[in-house]
Nucleic acid binder design. Structure first.
Length: 389
DNA sequence: CTAGTCC
DNA sequence: TCCTCTGGCCCAAGACTAG
DNA sequence: TGGGCCAGAGGAA
C-alpha cells in the first residue's frame, strides 16, 4: 500500500509540506480514519501466541474488538473525534495486486501446514500472521462497536482512503489519520501520521499539507498524481529503472506520463506491458466515494448497556473493563465540554463544497488560527531525510 | 521496564 | 566515479497493568 | 505485508 518513497521525496523536495505537531494539538479535532486497516493489524497482533488469538467461548475471534475498543477509548480520551470509514469493494484495477496477495497467502498457508506438522513453533507463528484475513462479519462487528461507542462510522463504496479524503475536502474533518500516503494522492487537504503512536513513544504527529505538497514540488494536481503513479502505487507497475527521484525529474521536465513516454529511451527504461497508467490516474482523480454532502457528524455518549450486551454477553469481555472504558470516555466528554475551545472560538467547521479535481480553497478560514496557543513551537521535521551527504 | 494478560 | 534503483534479508506489525 | 538497511548493477556525468 501507499506510494513508494513519497515520504522521503517530500522531506527532500517539499519540506514545508510536512510539519510535526504535538499530539495534544489534536484536542477537539475531527479525524477520518480507515478502520479496515486497523482491524487487519489487530487481527495480526492482538493477543497472539502462535496461532492463538483472543476468542470467545464459541471460538470466534475477538482480537479486532479488543484492539478497537482500546484504541478508540484512547483517542477519545485524547480529545480526538474519530470518524471510522470501512473499505467497500476494491476497484477492479486493484485486481492484479489482489491476485498477487492471494497467491502469496495460499503459499503461506501451504507453508503453515508444513510447519505445523513439523512442529516448528516459531515458523507457525510467523506464517499464521501472513494468512490473516478479515471477514465481512468481523468488519461489521467493529462497525457495531463504533456505533455503540457513539462514533460515526460509514462503509465507503470503494476505497476507504478515498472517502476519507473526500470528507476532509468537504470540511467534515480536520485531517485524515493514516499511515498510507495514497491519501495524499487522493488530494486530502491534510494527512496526519503517527496519530496512534503510544503516549510513551514520544512520536510527534506528522502532518502533510496537500497544497503545500504540490506547491513545494512545483507540480499541478494532475502532475502530482502522475508522479505518484511513477513512484509506484497499488494499481499499476512502474517503469523499471525509474524511482522517486527520476520520476520527479521527468515530470518536471515533460509534464505528464504521456510526454515522458515520448521522450525517454524505452529500451533502457521499459514501461510495463499494457501499462494502464491512465486508468490509475482516473482512480486517483475521480475515485468512487461516499456522498458526503449533508452529512452531520455527531459523537454521542457511549451506550453502556448496549456495549455490555454485545461485548460481555456475546463476546465474553470482562464486564468491569467494559464499564471502566465507558466511564473514562464519559469523563473525557465532560472535560471536552468544559474546555471546548475550538468550537466556541471559531464555530463548527465550514462545509466547503468541492469537486474532486476542481480545487480552489486557498483562503481557508477554518484552519489557520485554530492552532494558536496550542503549539508552543514546532521543531523542524527530523528523521525522514535519506541519510546521505 | 518487563512479562503477562486481555477473550 | 557518482547517483539511483533494485533485490535480498530481517523485523515488527496492540495496549494495559501488575510487579 | 511493508519498511529499513545493505549489497551490487547499471546508466549518467
Amino acid at each position: 500500500m501507499g506510494i513508494k518513497g513519497l515520504t522521503a521525496l517530500l522531506s527532500e523536495n517539499a519540506p514545508g509540506a510536512m510539519r510535526e505537531q504535538k499530539f495534544t494539538s489534536y484536542l477537539d479535532r475531527r479525524v477520518a480514519i480507515d478502520a479496515s486497516m486497523h482491524i487487519y493489524q489487530f487481527m495480526i497482533a492482538v493477543g497472539r501466541t502462535g496461532e492463538q488469538t483472543l476468542t470467545n467461548e464459541a471460538g470466534e475471534v475477538t482480537s479486532h474488538l479488543q484492539g478497537m475498543l482500546m484504541r478508540t477509548s484512547r483517542m477519545l480520551e485524547a480529545g480526538i473525534k474519530p470518524v471510522y470509514v470501512f473499505d467497500g469493494k476494491p476497484p477492479t484495477m486493484k485486481g492484479g495486486e489482489l491476485a498477487k496477495r492471494k497467491d502469496k497467502r495460499e503459499e503461506a498457508e501451504a507453508a503453515l501446514k508444513a510447519a505445523r506438522e513439523a512442529g516448528n513453533q516459531e515458523e507457525v507463528e510467523k506464517l499464521s500472521k501472513r494468512t490473516v484475513r478479515v471477514s465481512k462479519e468481523q468488519s461489521m462487528e467493529v462497525m457495531k462497536l463504533a456505533q455503540l461507542l457513539g462514533i460515526p462510522a460509514f462503509e465507503a463504496p470503494c476505497e476507504a482512503e478515498a472517502t476519507c479524503a473526500a470528507m476532509c475536502k468537504a470540511g467534515l474533518v480536520w485531517a485524515v489519520g493514516t499511515e498510507d500516503m495514497d491519501t495524499l494522492t487522493f488530494a486530502a487537504p491534510r494527512v496526519a501520521r503517527n496519530l496512534m503512536a503510544p503516549k510513551s513513544a514520544e512520536k510527534p504527529v506528522l502532518e502533510f499539507d496537500y497544497e503545500k505538497t504540490i506547491a513545494g514540488l512545483g507540480l499541478t494536481a494532475d502532475q502530482f498524481i502522475d508522479l505518484c503513479i511513477l513512484c509506484g502505487c497499488d494499481y499499476t507497475d512502474t517503469i523499471r529503472g525509474v524511482g522517486p527521484k527520476t520520476a520527479l525529474k521527468l515530470i518536471k521536465e515533460h509534464g505528464s506520463i504521456e510526454k515522458i513516454l515520448e521522450a525517454i529511451d524505452t529500451e533502457k527504461y521499459p514501461p510495463p506491458k499494457d501499462w494502464e497508467f491512465a486508468g490509475a490516474r482516473e482512480l486517483f482523480k475521480n475515485p468512487e466515494v461516499m456522498d458526503v454532502s449533508g452529512i452531520n457528524l455527531s459523537w454521542k455518549a457511549p451506550d453502556e448497556e448496549g456495549l455490555v450486551e454485545f461485548l460481555v454477553k456475546e463476546k465474553q469481555f470482562q464486564e468491569d473493563r467494559v464499564r471502566g472504558v465507558c466511564a473514562r470516555i464519559r469523563k473525557a466528554r465532560q472535560g471536552a465540554a468544559s474546555q471546548n475551545r475550538l468550537e466556541s472560538f471559531f464555530g463548527p467547521p465550514k462545509i466547503i463544497s468541492s469537486t474532486i479535481g476542481k480545487r480552489k480553497v486557498e483562503e481557508t478560514k477554518s484552519g489557520k488560527g485554530s492552532k494558536a496557543g496550542l503549539n508552543k513551537k514546532s521543531k523542524g521535521v527530523s528523521g525522514y531525510k535519506s541519510k546521505k551527504t
